[in-house]
Design a protein around this nucleic acid. Sequence first.
DNA 1: GTGGTCTAGACCACT
DNA 2: GTGGTCTAGACCACC
Lengths: 129, 129, 129, 129
Amino acid sequence: MQLTLDPDSEVSIYQQIRDRIVEAIAKRQAREGDPLPSTRQLAADFGINFHTVNKAYDLLRQQGVIRINRKSGAVVRRDATTGPPEAAFVNDWEERMRVLLAEATVHGMDRQDVLRRCEALLISFEEGV
Amino acid sequence: MQLTLDPDSEVSIYQQIRDRIVEAIAKRQAREGDPLPSTRQLAADFGINFHTVNKAYDLLRQQGVIRINRKSGAVVRRDATTGPPEAAFVNDWEERMRVLLAEATVHGMDRQDVLRRCEALLISFEEGV
Amino acid sequence: MQLTLDPDSEVSIYQQIRDRIVEAIAKRQAREGDPLPSTRQLAADFGINFHTVNKAYDLLRQQGVIRINRKSGAVVRRDATTGPPEAAFVNDWEERMRVLLAEATVHGMDRQDVLRRCEALLISFEEGV
Amino acid sequence: MQLTLDPDSEVSIYQQIRDRIVEAIAKRQAREGDPLPSTRQLAADFGINFHTVNKAYDLLRQQGVIRINRKSGAVVRRDATTGPPEAAFVNDWEERMRVLLAEATVHGMDRQDVLRRCEALLISFEEGV
DNA sequence: GTGGTCTAGACCACT
DNA sequence: GTGGTCTAGACCACC
């Protein structure tokens, strides 16, 4: 799993770590039961504070994506094969999707264009790219 | 144009204002050339400070969605009919969409489910709902 | 003399009027002694308040570019042939030029490029374009 | 980096801060990667409110001159060595330059005089004065 | 300790 | 009456 961070992004570091890990699981580069790097390992790789990595992992844990064992560290708990989504997740997700789709519409992307791009992204996950 | 804000949301108030206005334009409840409420008016309606509305409007201006005219206030500048999207916008938008789609995939939404929901949201805009 | 204004510019209307008139005199489309349109005339042409035009004319008067007669209206008082610049003007002008040139430098325009563009603009005035 | 502000200037304070920083970068007193004072620090130095400095920094960020890193504060992102200017910048810059050159012409500065002064200013940047 | 957000209120510029 | 600027002070998020 190869992660790249942008320290100048307006997205906070811990959010970026979380986003990259979610993407890696979507691409099936990491699967249910697979271990994640230790927080100290990841922090050293990126030259950031390990509390920041901790925060990202804690967020993933709250969202049900990973579980954290004192012994074995962080492990993927949730991937595409685990089962159908929870209703609460879908509600929240649709709220965020509505905003993103509204933006696309306002900026002149038409319905087919948007759907084609979404499909292409989803297929790229399935192909693990 | 009827806007509602959630003061307890983790999304900042000025972002919410921006999101609601973008959605209203996507639903064609406001079109190119239509005036928006004055910053102080909107602030009074929501019971918030006018600087907060100011920041939302400034953000919309930077993104090319509205223009601000010293005499007549804020006016919609960009809607679905204005023209094709700029390349820079599409690049940024796809980055954000990738994260949102990765999340859906990890939580067990399959490709068709995701696309169906996106299409439903886009159609709801076209129907002005 | 053909003037075009942009009501959405961040430059105020009266400043735009002033800028356009100064440019017209630089291009020698209006010369020392030539009359300018009446404030009410110009206001009607642009669909703006005549006080705004008044303010632009007053600014030009303060800067010594025009003089205003109760009877004959506004008349060009200063053009390229009138004589050498005042020291106070040059000082102020250099301050503003310094900022503009610093901006060009920071954004990667090199000295020759800047000078070539300035010369081209000055020549375009001499040619009345 | 030594900055001085004029509270009586007709140029707003946050614009002056922006102008002084751009000039400092043009003179290579600050280079790509160099840190700028924190917003609150600079505000304290000038005896002004930190929001005002914030606005100046935000403007510089929008214009691509600095980047703002959540941990290390503001850092110079753009200087003369970074690369060629963007077309959009040059267009806007030429518009502003046209007005300034027209003013010089109307006030009796001739072409060679203007170019000599511009060259002198540019050379003063190269010498870091 | 850094920047970001929000509030409150005053004053000014523009039209 | 509109937006723009500046001040003052509080609280939070991030690292």
